[in-house]
Design a binder for these strands. Structure first.
Lengths: 357, 357
DNA sequence: GCGCACATTTGAACCGGTTCAAGAAACAGT
DNA sequence: ACTGTTTCTTGAACCGGTTCAAATGTGCGC
């Protein structure tokens, strides 16, 4: 046996040992059918003898020009891919798509002490999927330099027009609100994910000053849906959170300390919705009998809790399929493709309590 | 602007356009300091002009022989990395380690319709970390062919002796059991993760017939710990699960339907422990006042629930650090390094109920 | 004007393969 | 024996860079 390090066996060496040309040796590994059996066996024997591990990928790669792998990049640290629920779900979908296509998958963090863009510059991939959270535009800028195909997911639309697939946040939110309205709810509160005004409920004007387009879109959708029942935006309590349990609980306390507490809550993410349900349970309020909760995102955890979460489902699989296809097969993507979001009704919403009708 | 596809600009072209040799052009990108400023600027201008995206990675790679990336492989589908809790936590730790070292991270699934080992053979990495679940030995076999450094994580010890880092399951389990004993518990049940005997409690002899070394190690550790209080293995109810809510709930129902139900539960994974707590709550049994629960693994979710889970903590970060260092820095790893597991005491365990003393 | 140290630049070899036109060998047909 | 096919095999070009010894140029002291 030979160790890798001490063993720079090249195709050339194998060819020489087998007494054939390098071209023939190459064929043994890549198109064995066109090599005469006797020769093939000789070469294979030589390879085995020398401990040749097969053609070097880099050599082959250089010729082929294709890596057959895609990269997924974010401006967050690498751990984001495994810790953030949205990213994780999105990645599972992308991974499934890569599995189908037999492509490899690299994950890339654009955070690097020395050179922020270094990891993006040096990732060995045929194209990049950008998971845009906050730093979308910067990420896109770095990626463009690379002159590689890329698709932005979750990009906020105000930014550069780059190939990207987005979701119709506004319409999804509208459906969620109309669902509650149809169930008879009239006192409905919103749990935000804007990371500000943590201490009190915000006015509609204040809410719209948030820098996050996603938040603005969703809240506008909520308002539009509620408007169908004649509920004005100003009558909808809006409590913001930073998506952590603590601020969600605080927000819930605030909302339910009101004179006429809400009978339903529209949460801007499933994570927040789940924390909200947790709080309600801790207060011995039943879901959905006393209070209905609608989430947003459709992460798997939401389907698995008791009660299961009614939510606006992001089409993760579809987003992933489009993004991967666009990179691997060069399928064009309109600069701002937007997918619709279906509402998934599960156990966390029910008719408004009778006493409230 | 030029598009990537139509734009095969090579370093050579840039050099020619700038009127310098290719060597100099190369230096402009790699060691700018040794090139005279005027020349450097000329080359940079030419590059910009031609839309040159910087030296091709494959070309450079070929010369350097290093990819500066590690791969993590399993015999599961790619989605495993983002869906399985253990894998996810392990990956977060590995990712953090790669971040530190500035290395890339590729994930690889050894499941491929045509050729099972293909993905492992063709991953562009400097080394592989193997996440061994059930298929450990097969995975190792495929990897060895690649003649690349690798480390097996979570490998069961009975198998091939390959470089790997394992954990001392037995000792961790022992600590968990002794913790409960020290709190005064005497009626203690075990929740298994062996996927068999789902319908009844198993005898010690039956338990030890499981093919999973992890399960055998942990259960032996539990018995050893309980033995310090004079509790015989035969007196410890053992209910198996397949790690899903349904079988856990069924197992719990079985255990608590006994004449003298347990006051504490040793769960072989945090996931199972969390389902168990959920069941207990649904039955209005308080944790830890009425029943104590100890998990195993130390996944983040366990720290975040109410009450927080007492558990045997796997040293994820340490495992990751060793594995990554071994690959990136060529640090040797003894064929079977085994790390100790600390017990983390949190809110889900407490003194045995007085009525039981 | 000459020699020398120093700063740049060049040219060619090399990294490890793949590919393809052209050559060689084996065989069939006439 | 001669030509036409078919089946393999060969040699050389090429993929896109990096590197290093050698060549060139530059400035300075005497």
């Amino acid at each position: 046996m030979f160790m890798t390090q001490d063993n720079p066996v090249r195709l050339r060496d194998v060819a020489r040992a087998a007494g054939v040309s390098q071209g023939t040796a190459s064929n043994v590994f890549n198109r064995p059918d066109i090599v005469r059996q006797e020769v093939r066996e000789r070469v294979e024997a030589a390879a085995r003898e020398l401990g040749y591990a097969g053609p070097s990928l880099t050599g082959r790669l250089l010729r082929a020009g294709k890596v057959n792998a895609i990269g997924v990049a974010t401006a967050e640290p690498l751990t984001y891919f495994f810790e953030d629920q949205w990213a994780r779900t999105m990645m599972a979908a992308i991974a499934a798509e890569c599995d189908k296509q037999g492509a490899g998958l690299s994950i890339v963090s654009a955070m690097n002490r020395e050179r922020p863009a270094w990891n993006i510059q040096s990732a060995l991939v045929d194209g990049l999927i950008l998971l845009c959270a906050e730093e979308g535009p910067a990420l896109i800028g770095q990626t463009e330099k690379r002159e590689l195909p890329f698709v932005a997911l979750g990009l906020e639309e105000s930014t550069v027009d780059a190939p990207g697939v987005g979701i119709d946040n506004r319409d999804g939110a509208r459906q969620a609100a109309e669902h509650l309205v149809a169930l008879g709810h009239r006192r409905i509160a919103i749990l935000g994910i804007g990371e500000s005004w943590n201490d009190r409920c915000a006015t509609p004007e204040e809410v719209m000053t948030t820098p996050y387009l996603t938040v603005r879109d969703r809240v506008e959708g909520y308002w539009a849906g509620l408007a169908t029942a004649g509920i004005a935006a100003g009558d909808v309590p809006y409590a913001d959170t930073d998506s952590e349990r603590e601020t969600v609980w605080a927000a819930m306390s605030r909302l339910f300390a009101m004179e006429r507490p809400p009978t339903a809550v529209l949460a801007m993410s499933d994570r927040v919705a789940l924390f909200a349900i947790e709080w309600l349970k801790s207060q011995s309020r039943r879901v959905p009998e006393d209070v209905s909760v609608v989430g947003f995102d459709g992460i798997p955890e939401g389907a698995d809790t008791l009660p299961a979460l009614t939510t606006v489902q992001q089409p993760f699989q579809e987003l992933a399929a489009r993004a991967v296809a666009s990179i691997l097969n060069g399928e064009e993507i309109a600069a701002r493709t937007v997918l619709p979001l279906p509402l998934v009704v599960r156990g966390s919403t029910g008719p408004a309590p009778k006493s409230e009708l």
